[in-house]
């Protein structure tokens, strides 16, 4: 990709995101979302592979529909209340439409079909952008309007996202698709808590971003796109594979790794809100995704493929680890003891 074009895309991506997350006016928020969508499109399609083009089209169609819906819902709201303030979304129909639009943008469950397809069509780094940075503006809109949205609907979306995200990830063999379903089920946790404690949603999002970036960056470093490649990748950087396993278990939310913290805090908040049955359900549903994380973990370091004695091992390149991956790995496995500090910072 031409460096100038890449620069423009990256800058507008950052600009679009910051416009949306800092805006107070619906039109400005919508503008930011559109800039964001247009900026990521060249990044998805940069390989010019037909699969990438397909992913780009799928992404463009869903995102533009969702943006149009957002614009429509804010206009309906402005029509009836006479103002464009994001936090003042009062009209019930526009609340409903906004929830739907955000669900499309995020890939929450009834509207999730585009997400794994798009991730599968793009490179690992673009997939990382799609599942972290591109989720930030819609989540922010949801946070700003969370007071007026329908709690039951959000809970339903959350439960079904965790269920379907875990369920559909079970029979995947492509790492990007697995991580897409993991993203869907994590979004379920974020949406679950959004009407009770929006700060926890932010915390969950940040921690999810850290953990999933670690996985994506590590997989990009060892160039792994599917499970069978992951199986033979241990010769490249054995230590990285071991830490990938820990990060995956952290994503699954096993104590004493970082991923347990958001689960713990969310369950605590839910029980405080007398939502204990919901807390139990969503916790048990997260076990579904544990299964595919465990399979990824098994493939990354636990098992060796059977091979004959004259089998050619992958060449060990002795590449030095890059520092961001190392820092992110440390963060995504060892933050749990710091949770009192993090809670007070919220």
């Amino acid at each position: 990709m031409n460096p100038h074009a890449k620069l423009i895309c990256t800058v507008s991506l950052i600009m679009g995101t910051s416009i949306t997350i800092s805006s107070n006016h619906w039109i400005l928020a919508w503008t930011g979302l559109e800039i964001n969508t247009l900026a990521i499109i060249p990044l998805i399609s940069k390989s010019h592979h037909p699969r990438a083009i397909e992913a780009t089209i799928k992404y463009f169609l869903t995102q533009s529909t969702a943006s149009a819906l957002i614009l429509f819902s804010s206009m309906t709201n402005a029509w009836s209340t006479g103002q464009w303030d994001i936090t003042q979304l009062n009209h019930p129909t526009s609340c409903l439409m906004l929830t739907m639009a955000i669900a499309i943008k995020l890939g929450l469950v009834p509207f999730h079909f585009w997400f794994p397809e798009v991730l599968q069509g793009s490179s690992l780094i673009t997939a990382l952008l799609l599942s972290t940075l591109m989720k930030l503006p819609p989540i922010t809109l949801l946070l700003l309007t969370s007071q007026s949205l329908n709690t039951t609907l959000l809970t339903l979306l959350a439960i079904s996202s965790t269920l379907i995200g875990g369920w559909m990830g079970l029979n995947q063999t492509q790492t990007r698709k697995i991580l897409a379903f993991s993203s869907i089920s994590h979004l379920g946790w974020m949406i679950m808590i959004i009407s009770y404690n929006p700060q926890l949603t932010i915390l969950t999002f940040i921690l999810y971003t850290i953990m999933t970036s670690t996985v994506f960056l590590s997989l990009a470093q060892i160039k792994v796109l599917k499970l069978s490649t992951l199986l033979i990748s241990w010769t490249k950087t054995p230590m990285l594979n071991a830490t990938v396993m820990l990060t995956l278990l952290s994503l699954a939310g096993l104590p004493p790794l970082t991923g347990f913290m958001p689960k713990w805090l969310i369950i605590q908040e839910l029980t405080k809100q007398e939502m204990t049955p919901m807390a139990t359900i969503i916790t048990m549903l997260s076990l579904l995704s544990l299964f595919f994380y465990l399979r990824l973990a098994y493939h990354s370091t636990i098992t060796l493929p059977p091979n004959s004695s004259n089998h050619m091992k992958l060449w060990r390149t002795n590449k030095t680890l890059n520092t961001p991956t190392a820092i992110l790995t440390a963060l995504s496995t060892t933050l749990l003891p710091l949770s009192p500090l993090i809670i007070t910072m919220l």
């Binding site: 096993l254 713990w264 369950i267 605590q268 029980t271 405080k272 204990t276 807390a279 139990t280 916790t283 048990m284 076990l287 544990l290 299964f291 465990l294 098994y298 636990i302 098992t303």
Partner: peptide, 28 residues
């Protein structure tokens, strides 16, 4: 050993995640 590991992990977690919920319920 792989299926043994899955058994270990899932038996323990299926039973202990309700424990977590009920510990937090007790806390509330």
């Amino acid at each position: 050993r792989l299926s043994a590991g899955i058994y270990l992990l899932f038996y323990t977690l299926i039973s202990s995640l309700p424990l977590l919920v009920s510990i937090l319920y007790l806390h509330t």
